[in-house]
């Protein structure tokens, strides 16, 4: 497989996301790059992957193209089951979702995610500096799916010591059994994919740990762009660049209109 030489930051995120998804598992897919990654996984190593969209669609083949909303008509066509939001979220609560795949604006070392506001919480909650969309279904997925995959563009200000607002709970403060004690189900954040590398969470401390650097990045360059101290796996390795074929599939077959994967 020939390596691509002109892949973009978003394209490597998509390829990394696809590779983390496992065949024959149910994945609750959030809007944006997770959709592209799920489609790529389905068309490569995971044809038996079962995507679920929070507006209700379960297991659509996605043969009529990339949905641009989790309620898009394209998620409904060929779906095995399609009711509404309550039915979809009840499935996650019950334990039907092996993975969820979500994005956010800001993440901390325990995989807690902010997609609500930039500003001072709680004092400035009613007058945020920047008002973001809000949880949508992300906090529900983070609380109740079995394992959470996060996508956050890598930036020192977005990888913060302390979030301005915690929308989607991850490993909370990292203390033993924190999620269980808070009443949640599921194992919480499993992987974080950024524009610079891939991270897991160390078992004891639940802290974010670098496992793969993307080509062109080093442990040092990634730490320098992270607002908290990263753990580094003993066997940290470089993630293989996307192949020309993977990049072609993203550009030509999966997101030909650049709805989520921008060309620049």
């Amino acid at each position: 497989m020939t390596a691509s030489t002109d892949y973009t930051a978003q394209e490597i995120i998509v390829v990394a996301g696809a590779k983390i998804l496992e065949n024959n598992k149910i994945v609750f897919v959030g809007t944006g790059l997770p959709m592209v990654a799920a489609l790529l996984a389905k068309r490569t190593h995971a044809p038996g992957l079962i995507p679920v969209f929070e507006a209700g669609a379960v297991g659509p083949p996605l043969e009529v193209g990339l949905p641009i909303s989790v309620g898009d008509s394209k998620t409904i066509t060929g779906a095995c089951y399609a009711k509404g939001l309550n039915a979809a979220f009840e499935m996650t609560q019950r334990g039907f979702a092996d993975f969820d795949f979500i994005g956010g604006a800001e993440v901390d070392m325990y995989g807690n995610l902010n997609s609500t506001m930039i500003g001072d919480f709680p004092g400035g909650y009613q007058t945020p500096k920047v008002r973001l969309p809000g949880s949508g279904g992300a906090s529900d997925m983070a609380a109740s799916c079995e394992r959470t995959i996060l996508i956050v563009p890598h930036d020192k200000r977005k990888f913060s010591e302390k979030l301005q607002y915690v929308t989607s709970p991850g490993h909370l403060d990292g203390s033993p059994n924190a999620r269980f004690k808070a009443g949640m189900q599921g194992k919480g954040p499993y992987r974080v994919i950024t524009t610079k590398g891939i991270f897991d969470f160390e078992e004891e401390s639940k802290r974010m740990r670098l496992i793969h650097t993307f080509p062109g990045e080093t442990v040092e360059s990634i730490q320098a762009n992270t607002g908290f101290e990263l753990l580094v796996a003993d066997n940290v390795s470089e993630f293989t660049a996307p192949t020309q074929e993977e990049v072609r599939m993203i550009r030509e077959d999966i997101d030909p209109n650049g709805a989520f994967v921008k060309r620049a």
Binding site: Q93, T116, P122, A143, S144, Y165, P169, A182, G183, M184
Partner: peptide, 18 residues
């Protein structure tokens, strides 16, 4: 009753009771 919002800041942005 639902299994969310738990922890995080949503519980203190709304009238949920845990």
């Amino acid at each position: 009753p639902t299994r969310g919002p738990m922890a995080g800041d949503i519980p203190s942005s709304c009238r949920t009771k845990i």
